[in-house]
């Protein structure tokens, strides 16, 4: 399953909830959720931890907009809009967390 998260992980619980119930699959961080893909925040350790079981992607135009493109955590895959479409097309199902 592809999980799409669009809320800031520092002010909303959707990424936390998603990680709590997800044992495998893929997560795509878009919009304000891309802050989870940036090095240096208190979430970085947790992101490294979950990368063992789920694959994490980040929509680069959103990370660039927020001035953090140069801080992408190693191991998180950058995707563009085409990559977003490919991920959706390749997944059996997907969930956009609200």
């Amino acid at each position: 399953m592809l999980h799409i998260i669009n809320k800031s992980p520092l002010s909303n619980g959707s990424l936390d909830s998603c990680l709590r119930v997800t044992e495998s699959g893929e997560i795509l961080l878009i919009e304000d959720a891309v802050y989870a893909a940036a090095k240096g925040s208190f979430l970085e350790g947790k992101m490294h931890e979950v990368m063992g079981k789920v694959k994490i992607h980040v929509l680069m135009p959103d990370l660039e907009a927020r001035g953090l493109a140069d801080r992408l955590i190693a191991g998180i895959t950058p995707v563009d809009y085409g990559g977003f479409v490919d991920l959706v097309a390749a997944s059996k199902n997907c969930q956009s967390w609200l």
Binding site: L10, Y35, P61, A65, G67
Partner: peptide, 16 residues
Amino acid sequence: DDGVYQLKKGQQTKGI
């Protein structure tokens, strides 16, 4: 909180 992100240097919004 997340408001500090408003002041981050280097924002490039062409892509969005």
